[in-house]
């Protein structure tokens, strides 16, 4: 359960807002130039993230311990840092303090196996921007990261354009060839999740967990996403958009340029 008490709501609100900012100027220019640092002692997790992000044009560097992380942070500027809290030779919180003391402005997403309110609060107090508990879906990490970078680099533009589809993040409106679509909150959320993970096969569980937020841990049935997918698909195609949502038999869905 992610919810822990009233304070938790605040945190949830932060990450919920993130989801609305979910995607930043998709595939055009942001992803291509993104450079992130993965601080994670589990080499294989770091590699999986690296491989997953690479196809979306995100350049990942990895550091598996505290000292190496500090060296890398000192030498380069990153768009985003993924931070594991438990490192063999140090504490992830110390890295946050270090960033703060050096006035570094990198966005930080904590990815931690340890999950409790204190850790979260301390993370946020030390300047972390988001908190993701292990295990997580790579797709979820990707959209959270895009949302974070989008917020950090915000320069007046707040729309995501995918061919004929334009999503205005702040006004939460979607247009297809200038025709306004009437999407529910969930459908909008789903659309952003799909576009953010362009060309990736998304499992039903990844989509369901993204859509149900903090309730995700309790769901044992992910069938409810069919309806959302179906409705979104229908609304998009009816408005004249291309049919970008592909059903991958048995696995899930994929947002793919025709």
């Amino acid at each position: 359960m992610r919810r822990e008490d009233g304070l938790e709501n605040k945190i949830q609100k932060i990450s919920y807002t993130d989801r609305f900012y979910s995607v930043f100027l998709q595939n055009s220019f942001v992803n291509c130039n993104m450079k992130i640092l993965i601080i994670e002692d589990e080499r294989e997790i770091a590699q999986s993230i690296q491989a997953y992000f690479k196809t979306n044009g995100i350049q990942c560097e990895t550091a598996e311990n505290y000292n190496l992380s500090l060296t890398k942070i000192d030498s380069y500027d990153y768009d985003c840092i993924l931070l594991d809290l438990m490192l063999p030779d140090g504490d992830g919180f110390d890295i946050l303090k270090e960033l703060k003391s050096k006035n570094k402005t990198e966005g930080v997403i904590i990815i931690s196996a340890k999950e409790n309110l204190e850790t979260r609060l301390e993370g946020f107090n030390l300047g972390a921007d988001d908190f993701l508990t292990k295990p997580f879906h790579l797709a979820e990490l990707l959209v959270r990261m895009q949302a974070l970078i989008r917020r950090k680099n915000f320069k007046g533009s707040n729309s995501i354009v995918f061919n004929e589809i334009v999503v205005e993040i702040f006004s939460k409106t979607v247009t297809v060839n200038d025709t306004k679509l009437d999407l529910t909150k969930k459908e909008l959320d789903l659309l952003l999740f799909l576009i953010g993970n362009e060309n990736k096969v998304l499992s039903k569980s990844a989509i369901a967990e993204h859509l149900s937020g903090d309730m995700a841990d309790m769901l044992d049935n992910h069938d409810f996403i069919y309806a959302h997918i179906k409705n979104l698909k229908k609304k998009l195609t009816q408005a004249g958009s291309g049919d970008y949502i592909k059903t991958i038999y048995g696995l899930g869905y994929k947002w793919e340029n025709e």
């Binding site: 589990e42 294989e44 997790i45 999986s48 993230i49 491989a51 997953y52 196996a113 292990k134 295990p135 997580f136 879906h137 790579l138 797709a139 499992s203 990844a206």
Partner: peptide
């Protein structure tokens, strides 16, 4: 997490 990320991959 290892398991999940590998399946995702």
């Amino acid at each position: 997490a290892l398991f999940q990320t590998k399946i995702d991959t």
